[in-house]
């Protein structure tokens, strides 16, 4: 059987479609899970979560913004290379929605924030 250019283009387009479907599947299973701080455990490491909480403390150290979230329970969070608007959102006292991954740092669980949103 001979392979021609037109058939090759069709195969490539089919592969692209399969690839996009796989990316869609990944996006669906990788969507952040709405959770509370009390539900964050060692088994949650690597999971993507979304938490609504109050910023109880916030400080900038180099290119990292370290803040604490409080929804009745507390957890430390970090945001790398924050822009001005993110620093404003994560000021002490603000009620925010934080999306990020659970990680372990020096024996403690923390959230590595990827997106922050001001709720109130």
């Amino acid at each position: 059987m001979l392979l021609r250019e037109c058939l090759l283009r069709r195969i490539a387009l089919l592969c692209a479609a399969v690839g996009i479907i796989l990316l869609f599947v990944y996006s669906s299973i990788d969507s952040p899970k709405r959770t509370k701080i009390s539900e964050v455990k060692i088994s949650s490491i690597g999971d993507k979560v979304e938490i609504d909480a109050i910023v109880s403390s916030s400080k900038v150290s180099g290119n990292v913004l370290i803040f604490e979230l409080d929804d009745g329970d507390k957890i430390t969070s970090v945001f790398f290379n924050p822009r001005i608007e993110q620093k404003i959102i994560l000021r002490k006292g603000n009620f925010v929605r934080v999306s990020g991954r659970i990680a372990e740092y020096r024996g403690n669980l923390e959230i590595v924030a990827e997106k922050v949103l001001l709720i109130d």
Binding site: G19, I20, L22, Y26, D47
Partner: peptide, 18 residues
Amino acid sequence: NNQNTFILFAGIGLVSAS
């Protein structure tokens, strides 16, 4: 720091190759 990266790499690989 991430899970299920096999699916992600496969998807990116197919889209980029195409």
